[in-house]
Amino acid sequence: MKKNNKHTISKYGFKTPKNYFTSFEDSVFEKLSNDNLLDTTNFKIPENYFETVEDNVFKKLNLKKSPKIISIRRILIGVSVAASLLFMFSIIFSGNGKINPNTIAINEIENWMDDNIENIDTHAIIENISIDAIDTLQIYDTNEIIDELEGVDIEQIIIEIETEIGSDLL
């Protein structure tokens, strides 16, 4: 009698949706499949294949002549200089030669950038840079960059750049 009572209370009011247990396996297999845990193809791979891929690729890379490393900083300087020169020449030769930066409308600068920046072929710039003259890649540590930036007054730098550009153009 006691057992019967317990059995009645065994689910103690809890129910499940209809057919929950009949479709349960399919739900789990769907999850396994979504997590790519099931072998859905018949293709096999060697044991530990994915653990050795990187090493094998690096081994192959070492057989080839190690490529010369180009300093990103120098490339950026090159690109910036080229862009600045193009900008200045186009302004100078398109007008009467006397330029007052205060008179250049913002939308004129934006239009110029839209028309010309895309035309700068960075690949061509890189190809024309003498590889031998380029430093090896200089990696900046994040902390070094943060240290550099700390205490820097960005607004002051902008004012200085504006003044410099203004005096050069005038």
Binding site: S10, K11, F14, K15, T16, P17, Y20, F21, F24, E25, S27, V28, K31, L32, D35, L37
Partner: peptide, 28 residues
């Protein structure tokens, strides 16, 4: 084992949807 484990879990988490999640995660 699904039913036995389900009821074991259900008694702990009480709500069906939660029990279902836990049961699926158990089998995974």
């Amino acid at each position: 084992y699904k039913e036995r484990l389900y009821w074991h879990i259900r008694k702990m988490v009480k709500i069906h949807d939660d029990a279902d999640d836990v049961l699926q995660n158990t089998f995974i």
